[in-house]
Design a protein around this nucleic acid. Sequence first.
DNA 1: AGCTAATTTTAACGATCGTTAAAATTAGCT
DNA 2: AGCTAATTTTAACGATCGTTAAAATTAGCT
Lengths: 226, 226
Amino acid sequence: MSGPKKIKPAKKKTSDQRAGGSQKKPTREKILEAAIKMFSDYPYYAASIRMIGKEAEIDHPLVSYYFPTKALLFEEVIKHVTEEYYQANITWFEGLEEQTPERGLSLYIDRFFDFAVKHPKALRIVALNLVQAEGHDVIPGYERVRNFFAKTKQTFKKAIPLQGTADDIEMFTHSFNTLAINYLGASTYYAGILGLAPGSRQYLEWVKKTMIFVFLPPLKQIIIGE
Amino acid sequence: MSGPKKIKPAKKKTSDQRAGGSQKKPTREKILEAAIKMFSDYPYYAASIRMIGKEAEIDHPLVSYYFPTKALLFEEVIKHVTEEYYQANITWFEGLEEQTPERGLSLYIDRFFDFAVKHPKALRIVALNLVQAEGHDVIPGYERVRNFFAKTKQTFKKAIPLQGTADDIEMFTHSFNTLAINYLGASTYYAGILGLAPGSRQYLEWVKKTMIFVFLPPLKQIIIGE
DNA sequence: AGCTAATTTTAACGATCGTTAAAATTAGCT
DNA sequence: AGCTAATTTTAACGATCGTTAAAATTAGCT
């Protein structure tokens, strides 16, 4: 048996209770951060609890103390990362309804890029786990990625007034998001093919140009409604 | 030390030398087939030599006898699968140069689907290994997937007379192929979101409609040349 | 039939994995 | 200060992994 006791003591210290700023991060957070790093650098089965413990600078059984199983830890990571993505995604639409399709798409992509630069690990984890094997023991948290992806469609519909059919909107959002996640979450791969540096401005410019080239026509169609 | 001796005996039996048809498959082939199956159902680190041996109905050390390391076996699988895909891809363009963009794209997609239905494992393996982690020990055969993907651009350019700029063609092919591989190689995922059965006619129809919806406008642009 | 090399089987290796038990230490409280 | 519960460390577990060594069997040849 392990894990932090469920019954909390009466009072909890807030994170910056100690004077002079909080240099000591709670263990649980350290583990979660380390797990995010490892699960963005290695696929689920290749990243080990021991690697995560090392990354977090703790003894590896402590990982099991805070997260009873590897599957639960991974789920927590997926939950964290998809939630972060989902919440950010909502804000990217702000004020776009007043813009032309051209300007709106451009602004949206810029905001997406801003997120991608700030949270490269989140995008890589989503990209890495979008395509799953069909084996019987699917990766834990898979359902969460699926739900997150399905929800992006609703976000889009709510944010932008659209005249297109539900079918057209569905085709557009799935394609747009799949491509964006691939290009930004697997930038090492695509940048490599293009002969560019993954994080370079040139690569991001290529992605933006490409997304506009491909998605401006269908976007116009679902805004105007044919 | 293991592996079949490099010095071949003077004569080799052809596969159907025995009377009444060849019911006994060479061990090497059985292993390769089993490996293709397992690597399409499980990611590299989750699929084990022992699972592959079981699938091939042989004792697992025989796998090491024919393929000295797991990495080499995986590379062989990637090589086989990308080559199969690459060769098929070339044929999908036959006669398309005389068609309108609408008709040509439709025919191309039909041929692509035909391949997808016949070789679902090939597409799944490519999809599963398109996005890679950035860890130091990248999956073996990764370079091959990359090269294969880069070559599809050349195939397209050679097959169809295009007026568009090299940049536009590059944007088009990478986007088209990425999306096609995702939709067809991860059909369980996307069909699940759409509430359809992965192998169903309805799902394939959705994918076709989507690909035309998204890619017909940019295709016209690179054919006509703006 | 008898030799030789290729193939297959059996057994075991060292390494690593996720997880648990138990002891040691620390933090929070009166 | 002394008690209690939370946290951390240490050690070890059973399982599985890829690979190898050695023995057993089979196939191909004269």
